[in-house]
Design a protein around this nucleic acid. Structure first.
Lengths: 365, 365
DNA sequence: ATGAAAGCGCTAACAA
DNA sequence: TTGTTAGCGCTTTCAT
C-alpha cells in the first residue's frame, strides 16, 4: 500500500504538500511541485485510505441511501421496477462527484439513524419511507437529507417527487374526454403519492360534473359501492382500495373483476404493475381490453410497453428523479441557500391502446 | 458523539476494557465489568466510528458489490429484473452478519480494483463481469471474491451460478417431447451463461437425432440459415444471435419474425425478457402463440407470469443465488477450507401456456 | 483482569 | 510556498 508519506518522501516534499496537490489546493503549491507530485501519484498508483480520511477529516464521502422495506415491496415482487433504475442512477450521480453510495434496506427509522451515525454519512437519501419516519430521520441525523416520493403537511424535509396530482388529473381528463363516465380509481392505499393521484382524478371529474367521494380511500365495500352507484346512474366515480398482498389481491380480482368491468367504463390504477396484472386477469376471464372496459396505469414502466394491449399510462422520468435527488442533496451539502424544499417533476400522458375512444364509437354506431 | 473514551471514563475503566467488552472478549474482562460497561454502552447509545475502526484495525466490515455496466443492461432497460432482487437479498444477508454493502456500477475492472482498495473491502462480489475482468479483479484485489454467473476455463475465481446447461437441456427436451422438430435457440451472445444454455439444447437435440451446429453462435445470416434448413428438411435446429441493442432488435424482428415463426416450430429464448418482447411482437403481426409458433424463455421473471399467453420457461431462484454468494464469500473470509469453487444452483422447467403440445394436435387431426 | 501507550493514514492549524 | 505537528477514535501489543 502506497501512503501519502511514501509519495512525499520520493518527491522530497512534505506530506502536507502532497495532500494539497491531491485536493487541488493548487494556490498553496508551486506549479512544478504540483506536476512532480501528480506524476508520482499516478506512477505509484496512490489510492487514498477512506478510513484515515474519515477519521482525520471528519468527512466520510459516503452518501447513505435508505430504502424502506415497505410491505408493498415484498408483494410487488419484482414489481418496483424503478427501484433498480433509481438506485443505479443515483449511484452514478454520487460516484461522479467522488462520493460513495452505501445502500441499506430497512423497515425502521431507528435502524436508519444508527446506520447514518456509524458511517458518519455526509448526506442521506430515503425512498419508500413514510412521512413520520422521514421526519424522525431528519431530526436525528444531523446531515443533509432528501426524501423521494413523500408528502408532508409541513415541509420540513426536502423532497423530490412527481407532480402526482397533475398525473391523476391528466389521465382522468383523458378518460372523460374519450367518453368515459363511470370511472374507478384503484390503489392499495390512500396516503402520499396515491392520495395525490386520486385528488387529481377528483379535480378533473369535478370539472365534468361527476360527483365523487373526496379521499374516499377505504377498504372496498361492494354493497356500499352498489348503493352509491344506484344513486348516480350513468355517471359516477369511486376510489377503490385493493389488497396489498398478492394472494388477497388475486382473491379480490376473482370475486370482483367481472362486475367492476361491467359497472365501470374505465379502471384507472395508481400503478402500472396493478394495471398490467388486471389486463392479464381480464384476458383470462374473456373480458377484452379496451373493448369491454378501458384500463389505465401510472408510471410508464417497461411492462406498460410490453403488455398487450399496450398500456395507456402516465409517464415519469425515473432517471431524472434520481439526478434531481442527488443534485439537491449536494446543494445542501455545499451549503447553498435558497434551495426548494419540494421538487415536483412533471409527468405526461402516454396514450397507447388500453383505453378506447367511446366518443368515436358512439358517433359511428 | 459518544466515544469509547467517554464510556471508559464513566465506567471508571480503561478504553481497552471497553473495547474488549464491545468485541466480546469476555475472558479478558471480569463479569461485573462486562455488565457495567454493557449497560453504559446501551444507555449512552454508543455508536462505533467506522473510520477509526478501518484505520486502526485494518478491517472495514465493508463488502464491495461490483456490478458490471454491461452494454446489455442499458438496452434491457428495466429488464434485468433480478438485479434488484439480487442486490436487495445480498444486502440483507450482508447486514445481518454485521457488515455493510458498498455498491458500485462500473464498466471496467480497473475502476473496480481501485474501488476495492480505497475502501479496503473485506470481500468482493461481482455480477455482470466477463471472465477476464473477474480474473483480473481477483489477481489485483487481495481479498476473498465471489463472482455470479460467470464461467471460467480454469476455475480460479469462485462462482455462484445456475446449472444453465441443464436448463437448456430441460427446455429442449420438453420441446422435443411435445413434438417440436424445428427449433431455434435465440440469444444476444454466445458466451458464458447463454453458451451453456445452448450447449444444453444441443445435448437434448442430439439425443433426438437432430443435427445441429455446436456453438454456432454468429450473427444471424438469413441466406445461410435457409440453405442449411433446406439440407435438413423437417428437422433442424439453429442458434440465432439477435442484436443486443433495442432498436436494432426491433428492426431484426420486423424483418425476420414472420419467417422465423413459419420456419420453426419453437423459438426458445435465452431470457424471458426477449421471449416476452417477441410474444408481443408476434401478437402485433397477428401471429398467435402458441398456435402458430411456440415460444419459451429462461429465468422465470415476473413478466413471464404476467404476459399472455403465460410464458413456459426455466425457473431460477434469485434469492437463493444471493444467499449462496454471500454465504460462500463469508466462508472464504472466515478462512474455512474445502469450499467449492463453483456452485451451480438447480433450475426447473415451468410449463405454462406459450408452448403447444404438437403431439396432441397431430393425433387429433 | 486491567491499563498505558503506540500507531493506523490522513488533514488542518500553525509556523517558518 | 513549504513543513511541522497534533490529533481524529479505535485496536492492539505489552506491562502490570
Amino acid at each position: 500500500m502506497i501512503r501519502i508519506k511514501d509519495i512525499a518522501r520520493k518527491a522530497e516534499v512534505s506530506p502536507t504538500t502532497v495532500s494539497n496537490v491531491i485536493h487541488g489546493n493548487h494556490k498553496k503549491v508551486s506549479e512544478e511541485t504540483v506536476e512532480k507530485v501528480e506524476k508520482l501519484l499516478a506512477e505509484m498508483e496512490y489510492i487514498p485510505s477512506m478510513g484515515a480520511r474519515m477519521l482525520a477529516g471528519g468527512s466520510s464521502r459516503v452518501i447513505g441511501i435508505l430504502a424502506g422495506e415497505l410491505d408493498e415491496w415484498k408483494h410487488y415482487g419484482e414489481g418496483h421496477a424503478f427501484t433498480n433504475i433509481l438506485i443505479r442512477s443515483m449511484e452514478s450521480e454520487i460516484y461522479r462527484r467522488n462520493y460513495y453510495m452505501l445502500l441499506h434496506f430497512t423497515a425502521t427509522a431507528k435502524e436508519g439513524i444508527q446506520f447514518a451515525a456509524t458511517w458518519n454519512v455526509e448526506g442521506l437519501i430515503t425512498l419508500g419511507f413514510g412521512t413520520r419516519d422521514n421526519e424522525k430521520l431528519q431530526r436525528n441525523c444531523k446531515v443533509p437529507m432528501v426524501s423521494i416520493d413523500t408528502y408532508y403537511e409541513k415541509q420540513k424535509v426536502a423532497n423530490v417527487g412527481l407532480d402526482d396530482l397533475s398525473g391523476g388529473y391528466l389521465m382522468a381528463e383523458y378518460l372523460l374526454e374519450t367518453g368515459h363516465r363511470r370511472i374507478a380509481f384503484l390503489s392499495d392505499n390512500d396516503i402520499g403519492v396515491d392520495h395525490e393521484r386520486w385528488k387529481g382524478v377528483c379535480l378533473a371529474c369535478g370539472q365534468y360534473g361527476l360527483t365523487w367521494q373526496y379521499g374516499a380511500g377505504k377498504d372496498y365495500d361492494a354493497a356500499q359501492e352498489r348503493k352509491e352507484a344506484a344513486e348516480r346512474p350513468g355517471e359516477y366515480m369511486q376510489h377503490i382500495i385493493i389488497p396489498k398482498e398478492q394472494e388477497s389481491r388475486a382473491t379480490f380480482y376473482k370475486q370482483n373483476l367481472r362486475r367492476l368491468s361491467e359497472e365501470y367504463d374505465a379502471l384507472f390504477f395508481a400503478s402500472d404493475y396493478y394495471a398490467v396484472e388486471v389486463i392479464a386477469g381480464l384476458n383470462d376471464m374473456g373480458i377484452c381490453v379496451p373493448k369491454d372496459v378501458s384500463v389505465a396505469g401510472f408510471d410508464d414502466t417497461e411492462s406498460a410497453r410490453m403488455c398487450r394491449p399496450r398500456l395507456t399510462t402516465v409517464h415519469q422520468d425515473v432517471e431524472e428523479k434520481a439526478r434531481r435527488a442527488v443534485k439537491k442533496l449536494f446543494e445542501f451539502i455545499q451549503g447553498e441557500g435558497g434551495i426548494s424544499m419540494a421538487d415536483r417533476l412533471p409527468v405526461k400522458l402516454v396514450v397507447r391502446d388500453s383505453v378506447k375512444n367511446r366518443r368515436l364509437i358512439i358517433q359511428s354506431e
